[in-house]
Structure formats: C-alpha cells, structure tokens
C-alpha cells in the first residue's frame, strides 16, 4: 500500500457524483463495448450469469410513503486493501503498483474464492465459453482479450488504455499526465458524473473531490479503502 503512495507514482481513482448521475446506463454499455463483454441472454440473466463489470446498483430506502433511491454505478471498487487478492491460491488476481486490481485470465483456475471474498460482488465468473456471432467478432476491441470459459474477470479501470497512454507518452518523450487516460465509463458519462484521475496528485480533480464533505465509500466500515469514491446526493 505504501509503495503506491510513493511520490511520483500514480494511484488511479474514480469519483462518482451521485448528485449528477442519472442512472442512464451509458457507462454500462460503454464498458461492455470497450471490454468485449459477453452479450447475455434471458437464460443467463435469470441465472445471474450476465457479466457487466460496471452495473447500476439501486439502493432504495423506504420510510413510510417516502422513498429514496440511489442509482449507483458500480465498477470494481479497486480497493487499496482488496479482500479478493488475499484469498487467490494461484496469483491470478493481484494489485499492481498503481493500485489497480488486476486479473490474469490465463492463470485463473476458476475456484471463485475471490468472488466470494469480495464484499461488493464486483467480480464475475465465465460460466461458459462466451458465444459470439461471427459478425460481432469484427467489433472486438483488439486491446482487450476475450475471456475463456471458467475464469474470473473484473473491471480493470480500462488498464489497456493506461498502457496505451503510457506508450504514447513515452513516444512523445514526456511523462504521463492525468488527462491522458480515462476509462470508457468516465469518458462516456453524459452527466459528467464520473471523474477519473490520479489520487497521488493533490491538485487533481479526483483528489479535490475526495475531500468533499459529501464523499463516502461503499461499505467503508470493512476497511477495504476503495479507490472509487462516491459523492452523496443532496446539497
């Protein structure tokens, strides 16, 4: 943990302003397209087997006739202290030096322990070989591998985009800057409710917003220290 907080090292984080977010679902679709996610079917939906790395979590409170519902876009919370990586028996999930929790599809044995350990239920399992009509294979994002049957997958903060941004920065002979890299969900958000950036840079938007009095984390009490921060709805 300390390593990634070292100066000069990036620590990527996301802030979702629930006051602005309208739960439209553009982020969900953009994430699916960007990461070659499975198509889904009614049968799979009924079994809870549709994989969407980012999904809209409805959190509803009913008090008499008064209702409050928060529609919370939920990617992997990218914990600073991830419960999932501890339990992996084969090093298939790990936290990299920039704080992103990764998944090695080619090593995962599919024991699904990490899914059970994740209190946010933000990891997913490929219950079968994903079915792709040949036509749709044409639109695969070439930067992201298609997951095989029987392995776990998860949101990686569009790590391939970071990789690309780094390469471009190197090619241009400069350091990686914050704006160089945005995950698909932050890029697409029509309400500009998702802000992404470097938490180690105290001047960045995410760092500033994390200090907002409205800021909170999901299941904060578990001490997982998510790098996805939410801003409460309301004034």
């Amino acid at each position: 943990m300390e390593e990634s907080r070292r100066k000069g090292q990036h620590r990527w984080g996301m802030v979702v302003d629930l006051d602005k977010c309208t739960g439209c679902g553009a982020c969900v679709v953009a994430c699916s397209v960007e990461n070659n996610q499975m198509l889904g079917s009614p049968e799979e939906a009924a079994m809870g087997r549709v994989i969407r790395w980012l999904k809209i979590l409805p959190k509803t409170e009913v008090e008499g006739s008064h209702v409050r519902q928060n529609l919370i876009p939920m990617p992997c919370q990218q914990c600073e202290n991830p419960p999932c990586i501890k339990v992996c028996p084969v090093y298939a999930t790990f936290k990299n030096e920039e704080g992103i929790v990764g998944q090695v599809y080619s090593r995962c044995i599919g024991c699904r322990y990490c899914l059970n350990a994740c209190p946010y239920t933000c990891k997913f399992f490929n219950w079968k070989k994903p079915l792709w009509p040949d036509e749709m294979r044409s639109s695969f994002n070439p930067s992201v591998s298609v997951r095989p049957n029987g392995v776990v997958e998860k949101c990686l903060f569009c790590h391939h985009r970071l990789q690309r941004a780094k390469e471009e920065a190197v090619a241009q002979g400069r350091n990686l800057q914050e704006g160089d890299y945005q995950p698909a969900c932050a890029e697409v958000c029509p309400a500009k409710a998702i802000v992404f950036g470097d938490l180690n840079d105290s001047e960045s938007d995410v760092s500033r917003l994390c200090k907002d009095p409205r800021a909170f984390h999901l299941l904060e009490e578990l001490g997982t220290e998510p790098k996805v921060t939410y801003l409460r709805e309301g004034v």
């Binding site: 969900v28 409805p58 529609l71």
Partner: peptide, 17 residues
C-alpha cells in the same frame, strides 16, 4: 441489441424480460 437489454430496468434490477 443485447447490451441495451442489460440496462433496461436499473431500478428493479430487471433485464431481459
């Protein structure tokens, strides 16, 4: 479009039906 099916009912978590 299958991806749109997945975002049809965020409030009741209902999709594909």
């Amino acid at each position: 479009l299958p991806y749109l099916q997945s975002v049809a009912g965020p409030q009741a978590q209902e999709t594909w039906g």
